[in-house]
Nucleic acid binder design. Structure first.
Lengths: 330, 330
DNA sequence: CTGAAAGCGCTTACAG
DNA sequence: CTGAAAGCGCTTACAG
């Protein structure tokens, strides 16, 4: 508060060099002579200089900031991916601006504008951008835009994810193979869950199964919804033999409620989740789920970012796949 | 990509005013004449102008960026608070830089330096800064620093939280009153959990109880640890009648494992958690926990930020308290 | 390997 | 209510 913060000039004066050289030393130490570097280092130490990245960003038009836009973090299935991304980005010297777009993405436009105004180097999306105007705005903004988790036909820029439809289909195949007959779907109201449900239903009926019953639930999905979803089973004309849940949280809550009602899982009722959260492997019974390699998504995102920074071409659709993890619950 | 982005100048030229006036219109529309404002608005529209907040930050030395430093987000007890904070901050036009400091806070120094280099308007901490050098660095940096969740005697700047020791004491009082005799503590290896444990033990023994047994577990704590913690009970000389868990996740895992072993909760073994996550009220049995009003913390943080921005004095220690929530599990 | 100088795109007293 | 001008603190061709 007292005196103003030291600037590059102050360091330069003390080290007996120009500001340009101090700047070079900070950003690419290898280009300045060792002896000069040592003097500069000492001057930085002595003055307590802290570089001003805001000024640097303006001068270089590279902010070293990445915006990550997610629907929520409270109980989000994306958290592992976001955490891995923030970790990787930080180790590259980038900062992450985290913005929450809300369950129905109603703040998406606002947060995209904010990210653009901050001149971030890249925008990473986990929600789906369905608004064509927004997609266009992002395309023409000249920033790297990475859509994750989903894998649209025509990405805004780059997409890293997997086909939700295929994941739904695969689960249908898996359950049919295990001999289940009457699946019931608990579907969070999000575009991606809807795609998985749709893939499941198409495949299931194509293979000769009866049309699955379904219950739609609000997002973000959580444990309590699983309990409610179990109770709602009582309203069905026929009891399902397996409940396909749109998230592991829902599956866990449903299992707990079933057990409290004296129902054995999976003997009397099988359950599957989605996301393969750590908890899924720890639950009693362990939960059959669909694994998405969040860390891999984070790594691929980093690869894209680095390639772009190096001016290289990048693929525009990167499929990281998914895997059904068979466990005890189904 | 094609032509350069439009600048304030371009808008000004088109609207037939100076750049200063456009700047004023954007930042405080009420000071420019209505007719002028309308022309400017049209010009912004026509040029597709997006203000450059990085340049604005440099010129005004106000970044409108807040750094939030948390240990992790994957399964963090802070998530609700962080989410509430990000929501409130965004609606004030601020952006949030989220940094992860790691379980043992080993990246804290790096992330503090990064935040300082970005010239954020405030740094919000959820981890405890024990390093005296870092505390000093933060004090002299001239930014608003808000420590949350804890309530240190001598805050770096401002603290919004509650006494963890008092929370531990309160839980001891609560359980004694309920007639429990042999508590066992499951303690995450974090400064704050340790304080709660210490408060519990002191109070419990002061009231004439036997020294509680304890198990220390790594952070971040999660469901699986609860299961392991249950199994570790077998190693104790005497079986506890209540397990006091350092987080709701641990409590949930412990309950599930106990039930799978045929133990009834709370009849044969009582369990308490901490944090009062939404799930705690939904679990079977519902989990007795300690509620911390994360949304309130977020609001108080905002209040401090706004007061500071307005140049007003602020309290340096804001106690938001906590409440033991008695439910079925203990 | 290093320096002088222009420029990044805004904001803000100051003056009118 | 509006404008001219200085300045925020860096980076980066350009030149040597």
């Amino acid at each position: 508060m007292a005196a103003r913060n030291p600037r590059l000039d102050d360091v330069a004066a003390m080290a007996g060099v120009s500001a340009a050289t101090v700047s070079r030393f900070i950003n690419s130490p290898e280009v300045v002579a060792a002896a000069t570097g040592a003097r500069i280092r000492a001057a930085i130490e002595a003055t307590g200089y802290i570089q001003n990245l805001a000024a640097g960003a303006l001068a270089s038009s590279r902010s070293r900031m990445i915006a990550a836009l997610v629907p929520d973090i409270a109980q989000s299935i994306f958290n592992d991916t976001v955490e891995a991304m923030i970790d990787e980005l930080a180790s590259d010297g980038n900062s992450v601006m985290l913005a929450l777009t809300g369950p129905d993405n109603h703040r998406l436009a606002r947060e995209i504008n904010m990210a653009l105004a901050r001149r971030v180097d890249a925008i990473i999306l986990t929600g789906i951008v369905s608004d064509e105007g927004l997609r266009q705005r992002l395309r023409s903004a000249g920033v790297t835009v990475i859509e994750t988790w989903g894998l649209p036909e025509d990405p805004i820029d780059v997409a890293v994810g997997f086909s939700h439809r295929a994941a739904g289909e695969e689960m249908a195949r898996f359950l049919r193979q295990r001999g289940y007959r009457r699946p019931h779907l608990v579907v969070p109201r999000s575009t991606r869950s809807e795609r998985r449900a749709s893939g499941f239903i198409t495949r299931w009926m194509h293979d000769g199964g009866p049309e699955p019953t379904r219950l739609d639930v609000n997002v973000p999905s959580h444990f309590g919804q699983g309990r409610l979803s179990y109770r709602a089973l009582g309203d069905l004309a026929e009891r399902p033999d397996v409940v396909v849940c749109g998230s592991d949280w829902i599956a866990q809550g449903l299992i707990v409620e079933a057990q409290a009602a004296g129902i054995r899982v999976p003997d009397q009722l099988a359950v599957t989740g989605f996301g393969n959260l750590r908890m899924a492997g720890d639950m009693r019974p362990t939960i059959t789920s669909v694994d998405v390699d969040g860390a891999r998504i984070a790594r691929e995102v980093m690869r894209v970012l680095r390639s772009r920074a190096a001016g290289q071409e990048v693929e525009t659709r990167i499929d990281v796949g998914f895997r059904v993890i068979a466990r005890e619950s189904a």
